[in-house]
């Protein structure tokens, strides 16, 4: 005789296995799990350019300010000067690498500022909510109400360009601060949104009930979860800032005196017809850097944004 059916409480009942209807829907998707060719390319490029920028002073490069007789206006691939020379005879290769130093410094510096300040403010707004949130959110909205480039432009114009005697360093610092201020509300809002949703989770409530202090909860419970969203935006933000540096140079308020990718393009602009490489080279440098940052930022976002990865 057959044995009786096993008796079990309801919660061990037939669980919902992979619903085939969901298979119908999920079949179309193919999320990238690994870094493809593009991903590795991005990482390599960024490592190379950042490495070159950081190590520039000790690399066997020519002095970017030194002019070489006979190098003036020479197209790329000259003996000893891989990328040719500019109108005054500077070595393009060293200029573009030293230019990377300043441009990347501005990019990372501004985003670091925005990340730290915006992130902190966003965490506070999202965690404490209430009055703090209203004040901070209004602050963000006001800053965001001024078009970003216009805001940066006005800040730089007022604080640096107005002063004829401003040193290069001062200009760079003002540039970093201005672009940082512009990026604060963007990072702040993303952090706030992320914090809001994570603060509602039970493990945060649990920590609150235990009596843990807000600072501890924010930094040990909430922050690690908010970090991925911030990372993605930061990567994209660096790309934006690097481009903004170029735009500001073209608009006349950029850095002068030391090469940056932006002011190299500005300088070479007038000779686009005869010496296209003057504009090409820094343009390609910016393009590759922006491409890599965008791609990696996208991957980080796709990995950690639940909505997208289900797709």
């Amino acid at each position: 005789m057959p044995e009786p059916l096993a008796e079990q409480p309801l919660d061990a009942a037939v669980l919902v296995p992979s619903d085939v209807a969901a298979v119908v829907q999920a079949v179309e998707a193919s999320p990238t799990r690994k870094l493809g060719f593009m991903g590795w390319f991005s990482v390599c490029w960024l490592v190379c350019i950042i490495g070159a920028a950081v190590l520039a002073p000790i690399l066997p490069l020519d002095d970017p300010d030194e002019t070489f007789p006979g190098l003036q206006r020479q197209p790329p691939v000259q003996p000893g000067h891989l990328l040719g020379g500019d109108a005054s005879g500077h070595d393009m290769l060293s200029r573009v690498i030293f230019g990377a130093r300043t441009s990347l410094l501005v990019g990372f510096g501004a985003i670091l500022l925005g990340w730290v300040v915006g992130g902190l403010l966003g965490l506070m707004a999202g965690y404490f909510k209430g009055r703090a949130d209203t004040v901070l959110s209004t602050g963000f909205n006001v800053l965001l109400s001024i078009p970003a480039l216009v805001l940066a432009l006005s800040l730089v114009a007022v604080f640096a360009s107005s002063d004829q005697n401003a040193s290069n360093t001062r200009r760079i610092v003002v540039l970093i601060i201005a672009l940082g201020i512009v990026s604060i509300p963007v990072l702040g809002r993303i952090t706030r949104a992320s914090t809001l949703s994570w603060s509602e989770r039970e493990f945060v409530k649990a920590a609150q009930v235990i009596g843990a202090r807000p600072r501890r909860i924010i930094f040990r419970e909430v922050l690690p979860n908010v970090l991925p969203a911030m990372m993605s935006i930061a990567l994209l933000g660096i790309a934006v800032v690097i481009v903004a540096e170029g735009a500001l140079s073209l608009l006349g308020v950029g850095v002068t005196g030391v090469p940056t990718w932006g002011n190299m393009i500005l300088d070479g602009y007038s000779q686009l017809s005869e010496l296209p490489h003057l504009v090409f080279i820094p343009s390609i440098a910016i393009f590759l850097t922006v491409l890599s940052l965008n791609y990696l930022g996208d991957i980080v976002r796709a990995r950690f944004d639940v909505r997208e990865s289900v797709l």
Binding site: L5, E7, P9, L10, V14
Partner: peptide, 12 residues
């Protein structure tokens, strides 16, 4: 107690 079917359906 409600009677349930133990286990899970097979892999399709």
């Amino acid at each position: 107690r409600l009677q349930a079917i133990p286990g899970r359906p097979p892999d399709l």
